[in-house]
Simulated scan of single mutants.
Amino acid sequence: MAMSSGRGVHESDGMEDVFLALAAHRGGYVFRHDLIDYGLRDRDIRAAVRAGHLTRLRHGTYAPTSLVTPLSPEAKHVLIAYSVLDKLGPGVALSHHSAALVHTPQSFGVDLDIVHVTQLSGRHGRKEAGVVFHVGDTTEDDLVEVDGRLVVAPARAAFESACRSSTESGMVTMGAMMHDGKVAREELEQLGATWERWPGSRHARIAIRLADGRSESVGESRSLFMFWREGVPRPEMQVIIRTEDGRHVARSDFAWLLYRHTGEFDGLFKYGRLNSYANDPGLAITEEKKREDLVRSLMLGMSRWTWAGLDEKRRGRTARDIMLGLEQSKRLYTRNATYIPLFV
């Protein structure tokens, strides 16, 4: 990539290192004026973008492509949100979805193209250039500092986000924060009572009631929403399956104890906290087959579903299949059963 600039930079050799150094100074991104101050011209910046050395995050804001490419959509949103906050300066804090994503990397169904900030000065709310400016009754107790920036505290961020999204989305955010110990259900319930007249608060309060901190993924939280929405009995979560002599067989995402039935969102039982063979699909399948055979030998039925089965157009069918499995397991395994090898 040829460049012409006030600093006499004519070759691309070393420019990627320059971009990385400039971005590191700001925490992962660089403003246009940083590049201009270094000696580049707008045509140089455009050339760097075309060559794949820089990625445009928003107007006047860039990041080294090598840093942006590995980021999840949620992490990329946080990077952009930080750049917005830094440009706006004092008097604003990240809020709503943007603050929630600072506190947890898990989300579903939120608009990641919009950055949300709350103005601490009480000015009128507005929306401009992909940023929504909120006005709220925010005190110091509602704010925390993360990476040197003001961010709405976890509980309030989760509630704000849930008010502006679906119940399912709110469950994902709240479940993730509860799982990580960022919030307690009691905190969320108190906010729900305090702000019961907020627009969207009904969705948020339902999400509080349905969210579960034992959920370990977006898919598990969405599965809980599917059970509620489609009338499937609410199961226990992260249930340990053992043999009669107490030997650990597997850990199931969901278990309907009275039906002697288990459920797996991603299709695989877990041994311990993580799948030890995640990097060896063949061995994972072999070990999974052994666990499945052992689970079935303990007179336990099972249902499996994947991300596609949670789609709004397909979740009704998924739920019906689960219900059929529950009834079948109840008929086959609860009659004359003398023990239940499940321990929550």
Results as ranks from 00 to 15, higher is better:
residue 124 H to C: 02
residue 147 D to Q: 14
residue 112 L to Q: 08
residue 126 R to K: 13
residue 152 V to H: 00
residue 139 T to C: 02
residue 103 H to Q: 06
residue 150 L to E: 08
residue 125 G to D: 04
residue 133 F to Y: 14
residue 107 S to E: 03
residue 112 L to Y: 07
residue 126 R to F: 11
residue 146 V to H: 07
residue 145 E to D: 13
residue 106 Q to L: 15
residue 150 L to Q: 13
residue 126 R to G: 11
residue 136 G to N: 10
residue 105 P to A: 06
residue 133 F to H: 14
residue 124 H to V: 13
residue 143 L to D: 08
residue 139 T to R: 03
residue 122 G to A: 02
residue 131 V to P: 07
residue 148 G to L: 02
residue 144 V to D: 07
residue 154 P to Q: 01
residue 149 R to F: 07
residue 111 D to M: 07
residue 106 Q to M: 15
residue 142 D to M: 09
residue 147 D to V: 11
residue 142 D to P: 12
residue 139 T to V: 05
residue 137 D to T: 14
residue 138 T to L: 13
residue 113 D to G: 11
residue 113 D to C: 04
residue 141 D to S: 14
residue 128 E to N: 13
residue 142 D to Q: 13
residue 125 G to C: 04
residue 152 V to E: 01
residue 155 A to Y: 00
residue 114 I to R: 14
residue 155 A to K: 02
residue 120 L to A: 02
residue 118 T to C: 07
residue 123 R to Y: 13
residue 126 R to L: 10
residue 124 H to T: 14
residue 156 R to C: 01
residue 121 S to G: 04
residue 103 H to R: 05
residue 118 T to W: 00
residue 146 V to F: 11
residue 110 V to P: 00
residue 145 E to S: 15
residue 135 V to I: 09
residue 147 D to M: 10
residue 158 A to G: 06
residue 150 L to I: 03
residue 156 R to K: 14
residue 160 E to M: 14
residue 125 G to R: 12
residue 108 F to Y: 14
residue 139 T to L: 05
residue 144 V to W: 03
residue 123 R to E: 15
residue 115 V to Q: 05
residue 160 E to T: 00
